[in-house]
Design a protein around this nucleic acid. Sequence first.
DNA 1: CAATATACCTGGATGC
DNA 2: TGCATCCAGGTATATT
Length: 281
Amino acid sequence: MPELPEVEVTRLGLLPLLCGRRVVKISSSRKRLRSHIPRKKLQENILGDCIRTIDRRAKYLLFRMAGGAVLVIHLGMTGKLSMVPAREALAKHDHLRIRLDNGMELRLNDSRRFGIVLVWPVHEAATLEKDFAARLGVEPFSRKFTAAYLRKLAATRKLPMKNFLMDPRIVSGIGNIYANEILYAAGIHPQVPAQSVSEEQWRKVVTATRRILKKAIRSGGSTISDFLGSSGNPGYFQIHFNVYNRAGESCRQCPDQIGKVVLGGRTTFFCPCCQPRLNNG
DNA sequence: CAATATACCTGGATGC
DNA sequence: TGCATCCAGGTATATT
């Protein structure tokens, strides 16, 4: 499911259920996700320890153990985490089970297997986390996410604005859905070259990004109480989109129809009238 | 260096 | 009903 808001809602939902709990058993499927699940490292570094807290960086969840080791989980395209009684039957595509000292179990289900599970052992955690952070772009809610930062990185880039925004090395957390919504809110055509975007437009991108992601987290937040069990994982189902998946429907601000084009292999939605192709800035 | 293509997977929707 | 085809919320890597 996950872009930044969904990962953040997952984190908020799991926090009260996992913090302070001890891991008493870990099992995993033998199928590989994007990389192999580090079975041995899980047993040696996570088993027996308590979960201190859960952080999020980009679309990664960082489960920080009391002893200093870190369990890293990325949900890929179809990953879902849920808490169920440990005795509950396994579902198809359950790939990781982390059993707690209260009889509950955290399960990772991922049909497409684009997810990732990593373990940073305590003595390497600082170095590994630094390397990890160095490959990622800024967080949309950090002070570094500014019009000046974006404009500088875009200065030599002719690629479509939308692909630039979705590059996780530039900004973390913006996937296909929110890239579409952000550009609509900022009134920028997804296909304009990144380097042609004006300072004023970048400012609109920054404010629209923060506003839209925050709103999505808030609306996902209403499902946190449903987090237990398989019934209600946070998702996109209750978010109201302006352009995503609305090709042919009418724009909410003008009489035009929402258009569709493929950019970088991803379906892209926009209003031809509210997001003019000619970039006059 | 920048842009594009491709690879990793399964499952649901669609069309014949 | 069965089968083929296309599409999906992400990211790393190879190729041009």
